[in-house]
Amino acid sequence: MITLNNITKTYGKEKTMAVDDISFSVNKGEIFGLIGPDGAGKSSIFRMLTTLLVPDSGTAVVNGFDVVKDYKQIRNSIGYMPGRFSLYQDLTIEENLNFFATVFNTTVEENYHLIKDIYIQIEPFKNRRAGKLSGGMKQKLALCCALIHKPEVLFLDEPTTGVDVVSRKEFWDMLKNLKKMGLTIMVSTPYMDEAALCDRIALIQLGKILSINTPEKLVAGYGETLYTVTGGNMYQLLNLLRSYAPTESCFAFGDSLHLTLKKGTSKQIATAFLEQQGFNKVIIQETTPGIEDCFIKLLKSN
């Protein structure tokens, strides 16, 4: 559905690298996640695929059309939700939706089935101006506006940034429903925990792809034993373990520390060391790594 071949994009006279020789493809009907921090190049990739930017080199094809030559055809068949919720703040929910429907040469009624599940949640406020909505409601409205012309591919650039956990969960449920309707969805996010909800993900940093895989295979390929460390003052434990020579890496992860050890050191040895340093209640356990662990590891090895 979407194919990128050696796409490169730089900005300005200094040729600041935004996207560096990236290639990947997205299959029809899948949710593909671009996972990476701000400045990784996510938005640039989105803008090239939505024909808003021309790549410096390389080719990209969306829905069978070239992003440079056939931009008009692409513009007809995609839905795009830019990084910020791009709505007219002084128009009401209903007016925004109607406007985007007409701009895309359709009506709200015609494709109402597509947005129904989402729209009924914000319908009670349909006469409220977009500027007065909460982040979660703006997000839902923006999604409705991107869907209203029944696109085949949906590009969502950081749809969950700045939105609270409840709205984020609801949003991902909506995406799963849209997937069932046959839409291909490309989504970007800085939240690693959302990666697990995609069919396939590309981890991206500084314009380069670190890895492309399904979340399961990515995690399976972690390749090291990961331990959690709990019990004791986290900050002191963290400092101690970082200064401990056999430690490969140690990071705070929620209520525990995630620890990997150099070859030849077992968790028993590490536990003994900590006990010797006065941490008597410390428990070191093996655990399955998450996407974030993988990302950190990839960042360190690059």
Partner: peptide
Amino acid sequence: LGTMEILLVSPF
């Protein structure tokens, strides 16, 4: 606002 992006991407 970013709405220009959506307008440009539309067939309008």
